[in-house]
Simulated assay, not measured.
Amino acid sequence: MKSLPMQQSGAARFLRGLSSSRSPLSPVLTRSRAVPATLPSSCCCPSHNARAVRLYSAPQRPPSPPLGLCPFPRHKECWSCHTALSAADVFCRSCSKIQPVALGTSYFELLSAHTSLSCQPGDCDGASAEDSIFYPKFALDLQQLRRNFLTLQQSVHPDGFTKKSPEERKYSEVQSSLINKAYQTLREPLSRAKYMLGLYNVKVEEGEAPVNQELLMEVMEVREAIEEAEREEDLEEVRQETKAKMNETIASLDEAFGAGDLTLAKALTIELQYRVTMEKALKEWDQP
């Protein structure tokens, strides 16, 4: 079999370098760290995780992930007419003026890709009846997400605010930029998983090795298949297998987030990083 030349795609070179001791993903240099499967201490409500679990288990509550977030304030005031608004409101319900981005507003809230439950007495320390517990969702309807994005982006685009006040022009630019970044992040499972973990102060480093060492063997096999391939058809079966395993990892991620298991969610996100890289390398293959 003829090997591919060294100037092959960057993704393929990346796979080829995984066995090197200098590779940023080498298990010799980097080991994954376990993370607690509870909300971090930086959550505004230290006792909130246990309370959120009770809410999740209660039969009268709709099903939602047991890990809720409640960064305060969950509401804001219109800068123009002083009407009380929710933190994620882009426009005032009273005067219709565009609003600044509230501190702590997540991409999920901005694009309506979450579940919110009203705070009940004792749910969150210092919460009022106007506050709510925010539950991000990993599994998203991507078509609905895009519709939400397009509708919102059209309503805040700076071109529509050229004759407005300086405040409104500034807020439209900020909102437009944030909405675009939110969509680009949530549309892809890997960036969505990293962002969702980040909401709980769990960070996934680019160089972290997978907990499942068998995955490294898969990387080696994909690398060898790429180097030995002479025709596009030679990689078709490998591509299908890689895609199927990546979909399995994404499904497992949804289950991990749904169960509130952040340790498993982080491990699966690291695994997904590898699978995305393998898929990219297979797509970028060029006939030698």
Results as ranks from 00 to 15, higher is better:
Glu205Tyr: 10
Pro66Phe: 01
Gly104Ser: 01
Ile270Glu: 00
Gly258Trp: 03
Arg275Glu: 08
Pro66Ala: 13
Leu178Val: 04
Glu173Gln: 14
Pro73Val: 01
Val101Met: 09
Pro189Ser: 12
Thr242Leu: 12
Ala129Asn: 09
Gly17Thr: 06
Met217Glu: 14
Trp79Pro: 03
Tyr183Asn: 12
Gln7Ser: 08
Lys203Ser: 14
Thr185Trp: 10
Lys194Gly: 02
Leu178Ile: 03
Leu85Ala: 01
Ser116Ala: 13
Glu271His: 07
Met1His: 14
Cys119Arg: 04
Ala11Ser: 12
Cys124Lys: 10
Gln144Val: 07
Gln143Met: 08
Leu150Met: 14
Ser41Met: 12
Lys76Phe: 00
Lys164Trp: 05
Glu232Leu: 12
Ser3Glu: 14
Gln154Thr: 13
Gly68Asp: 06
Asn212Thr: 03
Ala256Cys: 09
Val219Thr: 04
Gln120Ser: 08
Asn148Val: 03
Leu25His: 07
Ser155Asn: 13
Val211Lys: 11
Thr105Asn: 03
Glu255Phe: 05
Leu264Thr: 12
Cys44Trp: 09
Lys243Asn: 11
Glu241Ser: 11
Ser155Ala: 15
Ala58Gln: 14
Ser26Asp: 12
Ser112Trp: 06
Asn148Cys: 11
Ala84Asn: 05
Glu221Cys: 15
Val202Met: 04
Glu227Val: 02
Thr242Arg: 03
Cys78Pro: 09
Arg13Thr: 09
Lys2Ile: 14
Gln213Met: 01
Ser19Leu: 09
Cys78Lys: 07
Ser32His: 10
His48Met: 15
Ala225Gly: 08
Ala52Ile: 04
Pro288Asp: 06
Val222Glu: 00
Pro27Asn: 04
Ala58Val: 05
Ser106Asn: 03
Ser3Thr: 15
Phe134Ile: 01
Ala50His: 11
Leu282Phe: 02
Gln175Pro: 04
Leu55Gln: 07
Gly207Arg: 08
Ser21Lys: 13
Arg93Ile: 01
Ala281Lys: 06
Ser128Pro: 06
Ser26Ala: 15
Thr242Lys: 02
Lys163Thr: 11
His114Arg: 10
Gln153Ala: 15
Leu111Ser: 02
Ser96Leu: 15
Ile270Ala: 01
Lys164Gln: 11
Leu268His: 02
Asp286Val: 15
Thr242Trp: 01
Glu233Asp: 12
Val276Arg: 06
Arg187His: 07
Val276Leu: 09
Gln60Tyr: 10
Pro100Arg: 13
Pro36Glu: 14
Pro40Arg: 06
Val28Leu: 15
Leu55Val: 08
Leu29Gly: 10
Val53Trp: 08
Pro65Tyr: 07
